[in-house]
Nucleic acid binder design. Sequence first.
RNA 1: GCCCUCCUAGCUCAAUUGGCAGAGCAGCUGACUCUUAAUCAGCGGGUUGUAGGUUCGAGUCCUACGGGGGGCACCA
Length: 519
Amino acid sequence: MALTENRHWLKFWLKSAPVPSASTQGLVMSEETPDSLEAARLEKLRKIEALGLDPWGRRFDDHQAIESVRQVALPEKVEGADEPPRPRVRIAGRIVLKRGQGKVAFLQVRDWTGTIQAMIGKNQVGEGGWAIASELDLGDLIGVDGGLGLTKTGELTVFAESLTFLGKSLLPPPEKWHGLTDIEKRSRQRYVDLAHNPESLQAFLGRSKVVSAFRKVLGEKGFVEVETPTMQAIAGGAAAKPFITHHNTLDLDLFLRIAPELYLKRLLVGGMERVFEIGRVYRNEGISPKHNPEFTMLEAYQAYGDYHAMMDLTEALIVGAIEALDGVYRRPWGEDMVDFTPPWPRRTYFDLFREYAGVEPTDSEAVRIKAESLGIATAGKDPDVIVSEVFEETVEDALHGPIFVIDYPAAICPLTKRKASDPAVAERFELFVRGIELANAYTELNDPLLQEKLFQGQLAGQKAEDSMAKMDDDFVRALKHAMPPAGGLGVGIDRLCMLLLNKASIRDVILFPLMRPEQ
RNA sequence: GCCCUCCUAGCUCAAUUGGCAGAGCAGCUGACUCUUAAUCAGCGGGUUGUAGGUUCGAGUCCUACGGGGGGCACCA
């Protein structure tokens, strides 16, 4: 197979490669649309074809990652002896920089592991090869075979012996020093961003490592990965507005899921004791640096566990992600640093409330006065809601984290099991880092009768615009078959990646964030 | 949905109070066999997001629209 493929490799400087004649070049110039950079590149493409080469390349086996080539040990130079032989290497990548120097040219070739210099000398490659090398543009994809050595200035270099054309770039790359900075173009044309801004590529490769690490940690702890419907007749498991879609044959309106929760809990009923899903959820709400309409969530459920088990799991997951990235626990965040060294503090909601709001949370009147002083309207509001708003205003932004906020007022999390010792407190935690809510977990409610009542209460309180919410009778029926007491966890993968990769916007960790169409 | 703000060459950015739209990179031509964002000489490249308006004159001021960014609202 490899030998067959070999014949298709189109070498640059076969001795027989013809040199374009002066008259051909003159013709070429006159045909060129003067104001088009693309036209100039199309012309080069035709020249490459005229030389019998395929500008779009073929399979290119056995090339080495540039990063690994950079690790190759060079033979020692011995005094008085000839130059030591150069180790042979084969690389493939994109030309990101080009420096002509008369009858020699230096290229910087980049793949997804790194960048290395290649040198092409006219005397080394012959007239035919040199003619083609002259047509190389920034952005073209090439394979380089050659010897690895140092230049006079000590730069590690592949001294080209043959090149393989692997792809012609018809559009010019962004500015070589600044790269592509326009945030809109970087998102819309992510291919350009990835190809020419190495730090962007690294961020997305980092995101992939985070997700892989999650799967590894969960697997080691005995969780199984499942996939549940993203198109649902009843979009439950969270309080968010769904997207609507339609199945033609069934003539059925469906919702894109706002959470996988209710399906994963059905699996707990079915005896899948540790399940997780990493998947997209869709919420038809505003867009911000922390919100994209579709985002990726981990949800994990552990039968016979509780929210404390989920806290341990959360810590293990994020530690696993950091180890997969680089093992550095003190991480930059803007101008700031975040220290992820575990264990992270676990503080109760009321404790933090007392500390940051300076008010006793159970003293409704004191809380109301504090709220008014913060400019929060209190008229007609439930005292628990006011507590929650004061908490958000005074505590959340002040939490540098990582910190687990635990034991929430039961009134603001109705679908959570209450503490046996104190029915006013729900067994819930949220993990905060720099004001960002990274994870949310509960000891899950498994009482079908209470669940049904809460559904009804939720529906009664529904606004007209949210009227697509429906009672999920099947979920209640599932609980009636007995769901084991369980801990449940949700982690926003995108937000975690923002924190770990030091990106200010969720759009910097989502390959193709939602945008209005061009034009 | 509301408020603020940005949009100039392929890319990165200038343009004084409203007064002839510029530079660097990239491109093209030429020189150069060890460069490092190579350098040097020369050349080309624009419906200033779109449409109106004010003005002798608009990249600049006004209005609407489109797109982006930030904020508010929304968001267990």
